[in-house]
């Protein structure tokens, strides 16, 4: 079985700091692949290279057999990769619905149109509204994004990832800053997605990761020190030493 995403010998350093040190990683179609690791392990740097925001120094990234190492970020989005951001990244001065509608519009491929008002393109607005309903933000559709709470912003991040209809979703700490209840809800929501999308999930919330992930890779100092099924990782001695801590 060929993996959906293949990362081979990826390297990235900032000055003297090696953020990604010879990373090899496979993500299989349909799985939720968790990435855990202490702060500063290079998790976000890895995602940024996969999404195209950062250029790796060396190594290769392959998506469904196609080398995308040097493909610009906006083209990767069209090839079916999307990412969410650890630090919320939305268009704050637009309404919630407008944000999601832009994602739908990107999929629709009709953005180079100058005449008809965007608000009157009903199939785009309806689709965007549907995604908002899925994440439970429908009643906030016409509010200004900046007026929403942190938790709601996190929900918007998920709605955008859904709306971009990407087969591969790179989720960068979607639970960051959420309360226990909200985390639980989001975990359940992602569980429902399982199988229909492939997800690379970076997360600090261990309960969430072990509840969701089929396989987990452990990143420490830019290196993958272990990859395997969730149970195996939980019991791996090196991982416990490096990250989970002795019990």
């Amino acid at each position: 079985m060929t993996p959906m995403l293949q990362v081979a010998n990826l390297r990235k350093s900032f000055g003297g700091v090696v953020a990604t040190d010879d990373v090899n990683l496979d993500v299989i179609k349909g799985e939720i692949h968790g990435i855990i690791g202490p702060n500063g392990a290079g998790k976000t740097t890895l995602i940024s290279q996969l999404s195209g925001a950062l250029k790796p120094d060396a190594g290769a990234i392959t998506l469904a057999g196609k080398d995308i190492t040097h493909t610009p970020a906006y083209k990767r989005a069209r090839l079916g990769i999307t990412r969410s951001f650890q630090i919320t990244s939305l268009v704050m001065e637009m309404t919630v619905l407008d944000n999601i509608a832009l994602a739908v519009q990107a999929q629709d491929g009709t953005s180079f149109r100058f005449v008809k008002p965007a608000h009157k393109i009903s199939h785009i607005r309806e689709k965007a509204t549907e995604y908002l309903r899925q994440v439970g933000l429908r009643r906030r559709a016409n509010d200004l994004t900046s007026s929403l709470s942190h938790g709601e912003h996190r929900q918007m991040e998920i709605a955008l990832a859904l709306a971009s209809e990407a087969e591969l979703m790179l989720l960068d700490e979607p639970m960051a800053g959420l309360g226990p209840e909200e985390s639980k809800n989001l975990t359940e929501f992602l569980l429902k997605l399982k199988g229909s999308r492939t997800i690379l999930l970076i997360e600090h919330d261990m309960d969430a990761v072990f509840a969701l992930a089929d396989r987990i890779s452990v990143l420490v100092y830019g290196r993958v020190i272990a990859t395997g099924p969730a149970d195996e990782i939980r019991n791996n001695r090196d991982v416990r030493n490096a990250y989970l801590g002795e019990e």
Binding site: S51, A53, P72, A73, Y74, K75, A77, R78, T82, R83, F85, S89, L90, V91, M92, E93, M94, D98, N99, A101, L102, A103, Q105, A106, Q107, T110, S111, F112, R113, F114, V115, K116, P117, A118, H119, I121, L160, S164
Partner: peptide
């Protein structure tokens, strides 16, 4: 107000997000 204009304004507000959505801003 057009779809083009929405992308333009989106890129003004948050370029990173617009690129992630697949727009060559």
């Amino acid at each position: 107000n057009s779809r083009f204009g929405m992308v333009l304004q989106g890129a003004k507000g948050n370029d990173e997000r617009m690129v992630t959505l697949g727009f060559n801003t």
